[in-house]
Amino acid sequence: MSFGVEVRDLTVRYGRTTALDGVDLTLEPGRIHGLLGRNGSGKTSLLSVLAAFRPATSGTVLVDGEDPFENPRIMAGTCLVRESGDHMDDKARATLQIAAAVRPTWDAELAGRLVDRLQVPLDRKPSQMSRGQRSALGVVVGLASRAPLTMLDESYLGLDAPSRYAFYDELLADYAEHPRTIVVSSHLIEEVERLFEQVVVLDHGRVLLADDADALRARGATLTGPGDVVDAFLDGRRVLERRTLGRTAQVTVDGGLDDAERRRARDAGLEIGPVPLQDLFVHLTASGDRP
């Protein structure tokens, strides 16, 4: 079972601060979505509204066709794990028992395996745990809940590298067997981007980009060669970055090249390279100005 998400003109304000500013968004059910954005871009506010942790200031939010706020059916099927973990201060064992009791889709076997693999100390309270252990407990709750809408808000970032890779493996293996809607938010993109089928980029409380991950990977291009040749080729394209070394220029442009353009660039003696998702993200969100 998978919940889809429809968001129309969603605004969230905290006092005079606008966290989300007219967000329109569709998250197709049964896919892994990457939610990317700089710190303060509105990722956690968006996920908190989807999980009914807080109401929208204005706008429409539908999870599996219904408003999630104070909606028992939607809340039982929605799991948000925030970086803090939101755990009650009781032993990890108790936290897992409660999750098992309230989650109709809980998988105890998966939980047991994750506890072993991520080395969660079951007899400790979150206040006695390291950051990594608290992250691991959050990941266990997030994955073993097997919720139709599972959202992991940077919850795995406290894990060390071997545990993060174990988490990616377990996430993919379990998702392949039990497809559901999964949203993974991160500002560390390189490591997780291959997990995503679709990507949403938030910037200053607005949706900057929302597309198929492969389309975004093909979106930019770098052109390297003699400066005047590169300039002649740019032809009104949007330049994201320009570096020069002597007479050689390397320019990152927004917008992919089709086969004819690639051939023309190569014939002109230019080298064409891809723009990794992380670089595209950095270029597009680097400006400190509000749009």
Partner: peptide, 9 residues
């Protein structure tokens, strides 16, 4: 799972 990529890919 072998290459850590989305199954849809």
């Amino acid at each position: 799972t072998t290459f850590r990529i989305n199954p849809a890919t």
